[in-house]
């Protein structure tokens, strides 16, 4: 390559940089230009997990939809707070977004000093959904949630319920059930959902308050497990006959669910947010994306930026005291 060519390439490159830099500074007013560069998606949990699978499926749709490259990176650790903190520290321009959980965004900051708070979070929307499910073995003799609750009232602490971990949303709900409703189930935390489900299979616990991981659903589909109730605020489309806990006499227990969400730093431009939110909504209607994620892991109705931000706010307000008492 001759010297003049190198120089020409340099000038072209430099002017491109200047143009994009200028474009970035007044980007707030130019939605039609977003995205004009690669978008970085930081996934706050390990590769292969539910956050990762959902995040990557959504990224690969949004990439096509928005006509730009999504650079996906896993940055796990400290209950998702390491990756989430990275996202929230980045420039609020929409070029760095994160796939994380509502728990990492809203609950973890209440318990640990992770360097951010819910105020620093701009929710984009819910990607995938893991409703809390109260599950028993099909041959357990419990055919409804009322059976289980009656037994728990007759024999306080006698029923052992496996959960996916002490800080899992489902575990916290069991603690609230005892405190607010005086119904005492002994919550036994495991390291994740799979070992809790194995304990149920081996009859080492009487029930599980878990979610809809693949291993769990395999047993449900095989008829080994019965779902007695869900922790979701409303009944779920794929199990319309299963009541919610709220309907079963525990009105306030609507937070026992995992939301895998898309976030950005607070103060990203309105129009950029709208673009990302719109693309996320389309992703969740795309058959190929739904296939990868699994229909049971998608909300019946899309939950966008405003609704999600409000839900996380409510959750923080309601659960704040008990979370600090339990885990702080």
């Amino acid at each position: 390559m001759s010297k003049s060519k190198v120089l020409a390439a340099f000038v072209a490159g430099a002017s491109l940089l200047v143009v994009t830099a200028c474009g970035g500074s007044d980007g707030a007013s130019s939605s039609d230009e977003f995205p004009s560069d690669d978008v970085n998606m930081i996934i706050s949990y390990a590769a292969g997990g539910p956050t990762d699978v959902g995040g990557r499926a959504i990224a690969s749709f949004m990439e096509k939809d928005l006509g730009t490259t999504f650079v996906v990176e896993n940055k796990e650790g400290a209950s998702g707070s390491v990756g989430t903190a990275d996202v929230l520290r980045s420039d609020p321009d929409g070029y760095t977004i994160g796939m994380t959980t509502a728990s990492a965004a809203g609950r973890v900051p209440l318990i640990e000093d992770v360097g951010y708070d819910l105020e620093d979070v701009q929710a984009i929307g819910v990607g995938t959904f893991g409703p809390g499910l109260i599950i028993v073995s099909a041959d357990s003799g419990y055919s409804s949630i009322d059976d289980l609750i009656e037994e728990a009232k007759a024999n306080p602490g006698g029923i052992k319920v496996g959960t996916a971990g002490a800080s899992s949303p489902q575990h916290v709900e069991l603690v609230r059930m005892a405190e607010e409703y005086d119904v005492e189930l002994t919550a036994v935390p495991f390291q994740g959902e799979a070992p809790a489900v194995t304990a149920l299979l081996g009859d080492n616990v009487d029930a599980c308050f878990c979610s809809n991981a693949q291993t769990t659903m395999a047993q449900v589909d095989a008829g080994e497990f019965t779902i007695l109730a869900t922790g979701a605020p409303d009944r779920l489309g794929w199990i319309p006959d299963v009541p919610t806990l709220a309907e079963s006499g525990f009105e306030s227990l609507i937070y026992g669910n995992s939301y895998f969400i898309l976030v950005a730093p607070a103060d990203i431009p309105e129009d950029v947010l709208a673009t990302l939110e719109g693309s996320l909504e389309k992703a969740l209607q795309d058959p190929a994306t739904v296939e990868v994620i699994g229909e049971v892991r998608i909300l019946d109705e899309f939950m966008g930026a405003d609704a999600l931000q409000e839900m996380m706010g409510d959750e923080q307000e309601t659960l704040g005291p008990i979370l600090t008492e339990l885990l702080g």
Binding site: A166, P189, G328
Partner: peptide, 16 residues
């Protein structure tokens, strides 16, 4: 593993 609280982390998030 049972209480869910962190311990012996010296306040370092890398050890949570």
């Amino acid at each position: 593993p049972i209480a869910g609280t962190t311990r012996f982390t010296l306040g370092l998030p890398g050890l949570f």
